[in-house]
Amino acid sequence: MSEQPPTTNRVRALLPAPAQLTEPALGTDGSDPRTTAGSPTTATVLGRLPRCAIAHFACHGVSDPKDPSRSRLLLHDHATTPLTVSALAKADLEGAQLAYLSACGTAAPGSTDLLDEAIHLTSAFQLAGFPHVIGTLWPISDRLAVDIAESFYTHLTTGSPGTLDPGQAASALHDTVRTVRDRYPATPSLWAAYINSGA
């Protein structure tokens, strides 16, 4: 949600009727502008999610190994009202189909004491109602993340213009990761972090 416009436009062009929340630009004096209705705040995102079949997050994420329920996406107001696993647990998203979390460590397990718990942002989005969630196991390359997202959505495209099939998320991610793996076979840290959670 906070990428540079040319990067965002590459992914946005592949999404049907996207509603984009973008981090506001700094004021000319370097000041931080007030939050607006179009800013990616926790309240705005939680308010819009029930109307989104597909949600794509391009932002930073933090995995909290000591308290996985505090793992969070770093939205505009993350310092005061973070979008945490706990906050997502309250969401009820009946029409949800696919969430793509293009952020670092959104599927990272907690501490070794909690490995069997599977509490992280990816599972939280799934429990909130998204049957398909793309997450990451560790920090990812910002540059390559855009290529991977663009390829993923291209693989979801059906024969109808502007129509995606979220039911193909697993195979789309598989094909995308294999392509990136072929480009960087000696560097699995660039492509092996991406996982599909869901059917």
Rank of each mutant, 00 (worst) to 15 (best):
T81Q: 11
R143D: 13
G95M: 07
Q20N: 14
S31M: 03
L26A: 11
G167Y: 09
T122V: 10
P50S: 04
S160E: 15
D116W: 00
L137M: 10
S151M: 14
L173G: 13
Q4Y: 00
A192S: 11
L88W: 09
H60S: 10
T154P: 11
L137R: 06
T22E: 15
L46G: 03
A37V: 10
D32W: 08
S102T: 01
C59Y: 09
R48P: 05
H155M: 07
A193K: 05
D182I: 08
Q168H: 12
G61F: 13
A103C: 14
A192C: 12
A37K: 01
H60M: 14
T28V: 12
S141E: 03
T41M: 02
P40K: 05
I119P: 11
A58D: 04
T28W: 09
G159D: 15
P33L: 01
A124G: 12
V45Y: 07
I140N: 05
T35Y: 02
L164A: 08
F57Q: 11
N196S: 13
D175C: 06
A199I: 13
A89P: 04
R34A: 15
S71F: 10
R48E: 08
G135Q: 08
T176V: 07
C52N: 10
F152S: 03
E94L: 12
R70W: 06
L121V: 10
V11Y: 02
L164Q: 06
P40Q: 09
S69K: 07
G95W: 04
Q97R: 14
Q4V: 00
G95P: 05
T84A: 13
A199D: 15
L46F: 00
G27L: 03
P161S: 11
A172N: 07
F130H: 10
E150M: 03
L14F: 12
P33W: 06
W138T: 01
R48I: 11
T7P: 00
P139N: 08
G135Y: 09
A118E: 14
D182M: 05
A186R: 06
L14C: 06
S63V: 07
P50E: 08
I54N: 05
S111L: 03
P50F: 09
V146S: 03
P161L: 12
P50R: 01
T112Q: 01
W138V: 01
T163V: 14
F57C: 13
L14T: 07
L21T: 06
T22F: 02
I148W: 02
T44P: 02
P188F: 02
S151C: 14
H76Q: 13
R51N: 14
M1G: 15
I140Y: 01
F130K: 05
L93I: 14
L26G: 03
P16N: 00
